[in-house]
Amino acid sequence: MSDTSEHPRNSSDLSLAQRLEAPNTRLIDASIATINDMKTLRACIAYENQHQQRVPNLRQLEKRASELRSQDDD
């Protein structure tokens, strides 16, 4: 993660690397939980598949996708 003096104002300002390359799993979990649209979610899945392919991250992304789909059904 690059060192910068500016912090994102909200979760949509986070880059894919910032979301998925955080220094600990709690931050990764929190960044995944704040994904509010399928476009960002799909981009995160693609990023993870291209890079680390970490099963826990992919499971969290899959869980978040299910949550977003159920919200759309409401």
Rank of each mutant, 00 (worst) to 15 (best):
S2F: 01
D3G: 02
D3S: 14
T4R: 13
T4W: 11
E6V: 03
N10F: 01
N10E: 07
S12L: 14
S12T: 02
L14Y: 08
S15Q: 04
S15G: 00
L16W: 10
L16E: 05
Q18R: 14
Q18F: 04
Q18W: 00
R19S: 03
R19D: 00
R19T: 01
N24L: 11
T25C: 02
T25M: 09
L27I: 04
L27V: 01
I28T: 00
D29L: 12
A30Q: 08
A30I: 06
A30N: 07
N36D: 13
N36P: 01
M38K: 11
M38D: 12
M38G: 04
K39N: 06
T40R: 09
T40H: 05
R42Y: 15
R42M: 05
A43Y: 00
C44F: 01
C44G: 02
A46W: 14
Y47Q: 07
E48C: 06
Q50I: 13
Q50N: 15
Q50A: 07
H51T: 10
H51W: 02
H51A: 10
Q52F: 02
Q52K: 03
Q53K: 15
R54Y: 07
V55W: 11
P56E: 00
N57G: 07
N57C: 08
R59W: 03
R59V: 09
L61M: 10
L61T: 08
L61V: 00
E62D: 11
E62G: 10
K63L: 06
K63T: 14
K63P: 00
R64M: 01
A65S: 15
A65P: 01
S66G: 07
E67R: 05
L68W: 00
L68K: 07
R69H: 09
S70V: 04
Q71N: 15
Q71P: 05
D72P: 08
D73N: 09
D73P: 06
D74H: 14
